[in-house]
Amino acid sequence: MPASAGAKRLLMAAGVGLLVLLVVGFVFGAIGSKMFGIGDGFLSKPEIHLPPQPIFPASTRDYHLGLAESSDKSHETKPAEGGHETTDSKEAHHSKPLGLTKFAVTNTLLSSWVATIVIIIFFVAGAGKKSLIPGRFQALVETLLETAINFCESVVGREIGRKVFPVVATIFFFVLFNAWLALFPFYQFAGFVQDGELKAHLLRSAGTDLNMPLALALISFAFVEYWGFRAHGFGYLKKFFALGNLFRLRPSGLIDVFVGFLELISEFVRVVSFTFRLFGNMTAGEILVVMITFLVPFVAAEFVFGLELLVGLIQAIIFAALTLVFLSVAVSHEEH
């Protein structure tokens, strides 16, 4: 079996190579370089920004990232490189958040556009031929859709499932593509550099921008409430303002009102939980990738990438499935 033996040898060689890379990465990474006193490490210390950085228009970018300023105050950033950061230089490092109302194209917004375009290309190409006997790619796209439809139908029934699946599927694919596309390496290195420092990435996973999960959560919320009203008419509100027993002066009316109030609160709390679940997971993933890469530049991050693939998929499923479940609760005819 020469082929098998060759393959085995190749696998061994690759394994040894990866191990060597891992060790080298460890030694020259942040931990190793401190331990062995080599210097500053292979990569500069990463910065974590919770708010997304504006990148267009250029003037807004320069102002908010401090790009124009830092060339003037280059002396202030010097000590930071030495590792003794003053509070002043720390502030100079941090980009100013955009504020509540100012418009700029942020790197997360840009990457969401990229993801949108990729999704559209993927699906439109998949649906392009519309042949009754599908090719491989069309079959793949159809399988994805079929799975989504079946899932929707299994949760809310055939009739409603058919109608709601576009929104649920779009949520799923939007979250998924945003998460997975962010694992491409150019998300990590493409950006705006000044003084040898990466000030802002050109692209950044859209899930790490609170606005994106918030927008999806609002859409999910509006969608669920719309279907609630569509199924029950204005009677849908009775679930939240259960005053019937109170008007009849029954003591249980107070409990109904309280339960209704809880229901009402939970509807809105869902928006918050949706938002921060996705935001937290995506941000944590990105921070994890950055930190692991900083600590051990080679190989170690691969495991994190594998994890992130899984996290992206799970978050996409959770977002879509929870929307569907809340919708099925809103649509269901429960008599209290």
């Binding site: 955009l98 859209a206 609170l210 606005n211 609002l218």
Partner: peptide
């Protein structure tokens, strides 16, 4: 704003 909430971005995402 520290978390990065930005109304135009939100609308853009919507």
């Amino acid at each position: 704003t520290e978390l990065g909430v930005n109304v135009p971005s939100l609308i853009a995402y919507l």
